[in-house]
Every structure is written in structure tokens, then in C-alpha cells.
């Protein structure tokens, strides 16, 4: 069976910017999140898929049909812009009807009713809440019977509580619809919540494609590691590998990683939430890696505390407020930091 959406080696030049060899495939119902910093080319990629930029080379298939040279209006794409780009001069019902100009208006009303919008049919977009706009935009796109949804950071202008609520609603709606969706964002939280599959985009290039677990826990490059919030990324040298255990020298220290292969030079990645802190040297988990640590810096984050440690190498840990208070952490305090070998990820160098 062919994929619901397939990009094969899409390249494009746009002034100084270029998309290079973008390839991926989605199954029906997949939510694919493309995560990248601003300027990475996220919007250009979406607008290329939608048909606003002709690629220099490569093919785009939607529903098994090659649409590489089809105009936007022939691609059956539900494009969700930031703030949803509802037509301000039309009512909700007219917005939906726009997508099916020759269709029966009663069908548009049914569609609105299905998404709980019947009461809003005669309102103008200016008088809708964020959640209502999202549902109207989805309804409008559904009226055209889309084969694919594209989301261009639709929630990035909203405050955090609204964003969380709309994201959850969006996810459940997409689940019900069972259509493939591509969602671009610079917000890693968005990727974690929404993605079945995700990719990291930088300078017009997909650096890594995988499940969120793969990308967040096993980044393939230093850029990806930094971008998905791995605070500790250090150069190390592999000493020995045996039985799925790699011993890696970090300066004068040694760390164990669960790995069956490793190049001589590696980057050692440790997610901050995988570091456990304790007072007593012997207490805590049976982790393979234990280090004497001195607290260098303490910073409060939104929900956690970020503790920068010196273990002979720099190490960053996120801990809860409760742990922070229990351990009485302050700069200069001496602690034991432990990390499971399975939580130490190695990126091969050369």
C-alpha cells in the first residue's frame, strides 16, 4: 500500500534560502510534526507542499496522486495558518460555503453542526474565540474534502493555557478525522504532545526523522540534541564496549552508556530530567553512573529547578521543588548525581 503523503527529494531555491532533498512518507492518520528554529524553512516547506512554490526537483504525492505540478486549488489541502486566516468579510457559514461553492448550503450547516458550531453560523470571525476559530477553520477545510492537513504554527500567538486547551482539542479532532497532518512549530512541547512522527528541520534540511521518543532520547547530531532540550552534550572518548555497555572517558571521569557499538570519539548526551540527585553517596537508585557533584548554579524554571553541577565535567539536572527543598540545595552544596546507563545516549563522531 502506498503512503498517504510522500515527499521524495524535494529541493527548492528561494533567493538565498534553499530546501534540500526533503523526503518523508506519512500514513493515513499520522500527525507529523516538523520542529525547527525560526528561519529553518518550515513555512516554505509547507507552502511548497501546498503548491505555492514550485520545487526545483523531487516529487510530492498526496493520496497516491502526483501533485508536484498541480496548482494549490487542485491539491485538496486543508491549510491552517496562524490565527487560522478565516475570511473576515464572511460569516462562519459563508466561510465554510466558500470551500464548496456549488454545494448545497444545507451540507455546510450539517458540517458546522457536527463540530458544534451551528449556533455560530451567522457570526463573523471577529466575534469568535480562539477555539471557535480553530473549529471553523477545520470545518471550512473539511468542506473541501481534504486529503491532508497542514498546520503552520497555528497556536503560537496564543497564551499558554489557551494554547494547551486548543492543542488537546486539535489532537482529538485529528484523531477522529483520521487524516494525515503535517504540523510545523518551533515549540518542542507541541511536538511531544501532538506527534506520531516528527522531524527536525534546520536551514532547509531535515536532520532527523523518527518518533518523538527516538528524537528526544536519541538525537543523531549535536544540533538536534541541543534543540530538543538535552542540556548536557559533552565530547567523550570510548574506552571499551562489551555486552551492550560502553565505557566512555569524560575528562578525568568515566561514564557508562547502554550501547552495543560506539565510535572512538563520541558526544555524550544526558537529558536533564534523567539525572537524579541525592545527599548520601550510597543512597538512591542502583544506577551504574554515580558522581560526586558540587552545585554551581540554581535557577527556577516554570515548573522545575535547573541545577548546574560540577562532577569533574559539567552536568545539568532538572528536579522538582520538593526534591530541591528536601536536599537543601544551594550553590556550593555537595551531592551525589546518578544517571542510568540506559539514559546516556552516545552520538558517534566520524
Amino acid at each position: 500500500m502506498s503512503a498517504a503523503v510522500e515527499l521524495e527529494r524535494i529541493s527548492l531555491s528561494l533567493g538565498a534560502f534553499a530546501l534540500r532533498d526533503i523526503s518523508f512518507a506519512l500514513d493515513s492518520g499520522d500527525i507529523f510534526v516538523i520542529l525547527g528554529p525560526s528561519g529553518a524553512g518550515k513555512s516554505v516547506l509547507l507552502e511548497t507542499i501546498a503548491g505555492f512554490y514550485p520545487p526545483k526537483s523531487g516529487t510530492i504525492k498526496i493520496g497516491g496522486r502526483d501533485v508536484t505540478s498541480a496548482p494549490p486549488e487542485a491539491r485538496r489541502i486543508g491549510f491552517m495558518f496562524q490565527d487560522y486566516a478565516l475570511f473576515p468579510h464572511l460569516t462562519v457559514a459563508q466561510n465554510v460555503q466558500f470551500a464548496r461553492p456549488n454545494g448545497d448550503p444545507a451540507h455546510s450547516r450539517d458540517l458546522l453542526a457536527r463540530l458544534g458550531l451551528a449556533a455560530l453560523a451567522n457570526r463573523h470571525p471577529a466575534n469568535l474565540s480562539g477555539g471557535e476559530k480553530q473549529r471553523v477553520a477545520l470545518t471550512r477545510a473539511l468542506a473541501m474534502n481534504p486529503a491532508l492537513f497542514l498546520f503552520d504554527e497555528p497556536l503560537s500567538a496564543l497564551d499558554a493555557p489557551t494554547r494547551d486547551a486548543l492543542r488537546a482539542e486539535l489532537k482529538s479532532l485529528l484523531r477522529q478525522l483520521g487524516l494525515p497532518a503535517i504540523y510545523v512549530t518551533h515549540d518542542q512541547a507541541e511536538a511531544l504532545v501532538l506527534a506520531d512522527k516528527m522531524a527536525i528541520l534546520r536551514d532547509g534540511e531535515l536532520l532527523q526523522v523518527g518518533t518523538p521518543a527516538e528524537i528526544f532520547n536519541a538525537p543523531a547530531s549535536e544540533f538536534v540534541a541541543n534543540f530538543v532540550g538535552i542540556e548536557t552534550v559533552l565530547k567523550g572518548e570510548t574506552l571499551a564496549v562489551s555486552d551492550g555497555d560502553a565505557r566512555v572517558a569524560l575528562g578525568s571521569c568515566e561514564i557508562h552508556a547502554a550501547a552495543s557499538r560506539a565510535t572512538r570519539r563520541v558526544l555524550v548526551c544526558i537529558r536533564p530530567e534523567d539525572v537524579a540527585l541525592s545527599r548520601a553517596p550510597g543512597a538512591g537508585s542502583g544506577a551504574r553512573n554515580r558522581f560526586d557533584a558540587r552545585v554551581v548554579e540554581v535557577a527556577a524554571l516554570a515548573h522545575l529547578f535547573k541545577i548546574t553541577l560540577d562532577c569533574g565535567f559539567p552536568l545539568v539536572a532538572y528536579i522538582t521543588k520538593q526534591t530541591y527543598l528536601e536536599l537543601g540545595i544551594a550553590p556550593g552544596a555537595r551531592l551525589t548525581a546518578s544517571v542510568e546507563a540506559a539514559d546516556v545516549h552516545l552520538i558517534p563522531q566520524e
Binding site: 501546498a50 505555492f52 486549488e73 486543508g78 495558518f81 486566516a85 468542506a143 473541501m144
Partner: peptide, 10 residues
């Protein structure tokens, strides 16, 4: 973007 979204709507 309103013009673009209109194009995608057919």
C-alpha cells in the same frame, strides 16, 4: 495568507 488559504480551499 487569506488569499493563500482561499487557493487551498479550491
Amino acid at each position: 495568507r487569506l488569499e493563500k488559504v482561499a487557493r487551498t480551499l479550491g
